[in-house]
């Protein structure tokens, strides 16, 4: 049974596409056949982050409109045989997406893939709503600042009320919190919300903290998902996140500035 994961946030620029690329690659590296779909029709980015922009022929909208088959549109990653990318159309807008069309594509993907990662656009409009509508799990990305937290909260409300699972009265979407661009130094100085603050506001299960890291920008520019950069903190954080999502018991890292404080913080509550 395929599992549909939506990566969402409400606010823009918090790291949805970076995260989608990283966890899709992470799941594929663990040997799970994974597809990642760019729902940001009109503002296509995922192909750049994954470094396959030169191989885009057909896109998501072509498949929805039956102008291409799914196999024609899916791009196989060169680094990992289990990762496939379905890029967005750059020339269309979000109105090209229909609930029936998206449902049809997801159903077809579900036949062969274990995980389907939906990279949601920012906002709470059509693209974002369709990205989350069919989801089983939601990765809610939040930056440690109030506007991002509030937008995530709004998104959580929509996940709980407007998804297919909510409409059918099924078990609700499983929601996970990912805190990105976290800087323990600035938290200590009171310039940034802490993990506790964010969890207090959102009351959500924390899947992982991704530290602010220059390697994220480098990875984006070079078209290599940051999870492949095993030297970087951000890459390791995403690796932990994938492992935790798959049920492994991995202790949280990157929450505190120094390692010695880590365990105290972790086991305090």
């Amino acid at each position: 049974m395929a599992r549909i994961i939506v990566v969402t946030s409400g606010k823009g620029g918090v790291g949805k596409t970076t995260t989608s690329a990283a966890i899709a690659m992470g799941l594929a590296k663990k040997g799970h056949k994974t597809a990642v779909i760019d729902f940001d029709v009109g503002l296509r980015n995922l192909d750049l982050i994954l470094g396959c922009e030169r191989r885009v022929v057909y896109d998501f909208v072509n498949v929805i409109n039956d102008e291409a088959t799914l196999n024609q549109a899916l791009i196989k990653d060169k680094r990992c045989k289990d990762l496939f990318i379905l890029p967005a159309s750059q020339t269309r807008d979000k109105d090209a997406l229909t609930k029936e069309g998206v449902g049809k594509v997801l159903d077809e993907l579900a036949k062969t893939f274990k995980y389907i990662v939906c990279d949601s656009p920012a906002g709470i409009e059509r693209g974002a709503n369709l990205a989350m509508y069919f989801a089983d799990d939601a990765f809610v990305i939040t930056n440690p600042e109030v506007s991002s937290v509030r937008d995530s909260d709004r998104m959580l409300g929509i996940l709980a009320s407007k998804s297919r699972r909510a409409e059918n009265g099924d078990e609700p979407i499983k929601e996970y919190l990912l805190l990105s661009r976290y800087d323990p130094k600035r938290v200590k100085l009171g310039e940034m919300l802490s993990v506790e603050d964010v969890q207090d506001i959102l009351s959500l299960h924390l899947l992982g903290v991704i530290p602010e890291s220059p390697s994220v920008l480098n990875a984006s520019n070079s078209g290599t998902p940051v999870i492949l950069d095993e030297e970087s903190n951000a890459g390791q954080a995403y690796k932990d996140i994938v492992a935790r999502y798959l049920g492994e018991d991995v202790p949280h890292r990157f929450i505190d500035e120094e390692k010695k404080g880590l365990f105290g913080r972790l086991f305090r509550s």
């Binding site: 509030r150 937008d151 909260d153 709004r154 959580l156 409300g157 929509i158 709980a160 009320s161 506001i201 959102l202 009351s203």
Partner: peptide
Amino acid sequence: AQPIRSGQRIYAKGDLVIIAQVSSGA
């Protein structure tokens, strides 16, 4: 019993009991 998230609106004809948090913007 669910958290009331930002942007959600709840209307009750009688009394309303919420056994969770009510987020700002709700």
